[in-house]
């Protein structure tokens, strides 16, 4: 492994915290792979070796797991993972067109990264926000009700180094590495940041109120 002493010490400390969450050590593997991505920006050979040593697995066993899951990247990832949902519902509502225009605008295709290392594009499968279709995800934050124009604007702003807020989620989109650390189970203090629940989330409540439903204490 080529990690320097400080990095390795921090990794080992974090790994110990993750392993302590589970009755059986191996359960720590998925969060530890997120942890590796938070340091290296992808699942690096060093990261695989590190996980293997910590969990008493072979590097092959770790690789076999890492290659199964789409969130684990096998090449250095862009600072921002930009996914356009092209599963049926979003695709039909306009996701296909958003993908076409965005891909052309950025100049890369599925699972490819721009030369400046900023943007990795992805054709996403359903991200459980169908009531906000068409949906785009940037580093796993929700960008709801997109158009080709709004999607291109988001990407342009990210590349220009501006802070960009999702439509539901925290005050701004964090970097791929920062978000990977959260996915390893470490809080980043942003849970209370909010852009509002969103109209579709509250659509049923609004309709219920029109029917005369009153918010009653339990």
């Amino acid at each position: 492994m080529t990690y320097d002493e400080t990095t390795l010490a921090q990794l080992a400390e974090d790994a110990a915290a993750i392993i302590a969450r589970y009755p059986v050590k191996r359960s720590a593997l998925l969060p530890m792979l997120h942890l590796v991505q938070s340091v290296d920006g992808f699942v690096s050979p060093d990261g695989i070796q590190f996980c293997a040593e910590q969990l008493e697995l072979t590097a092959a066993e770790v690789s076999a797991v890492a290659t199964f899951y789409t969130q684990y990247k096998r090449r250095p990832n862009g600072e921002y993972q930009v996914g356009v949902c092209t599963n049926t519902l979003c695709a039909v509502m306009g996701g296909d067109r958003i993908w076409d225009e965005l891909s052309e605008h950025v100049g890369v295709g599925h699972d490819e990264t721009t030369e400046d290392g900023q943007i990795t594009l992805e054709r996403l499968e359903c991200n459980a926000a169908c009531d906000y279709a068409p949906v785009m995800m940037v580093n796993w934050e929700f960008f709801d009700n997109q158009t080709p124009e709004s999607a291109k604007q988001v990407v342009d702003d990210l590349r220009a180094g501006k802070d960009v807020a999702p439509t539901r989620g925290p005050a701004k989109v964090c970097s791929f590495k920062q978000v990977s650390r959260v996915l390893a189970g470490f809080e980043d203090g942003r849970a209370d940041e909010d852009q509002g629940a969103g109209a579709p989330t509250l659509a049923g409540l609004a309709a219920a109120k029109e029917q005369g439903w009153k918010e009653a204490a339990k």
Binding site: N127, W140, E141, R168, P170, L183, D188, R190, A191
Partner: peptide, 10 residues
């Protein structure tokens, strides 16, 4: 699921 980071924060 891992693709919803703000839900994980909450």
């Amino acid at each position: 699921r891992g693709e919803v980071v703000h839900v994980y924060r909450r």
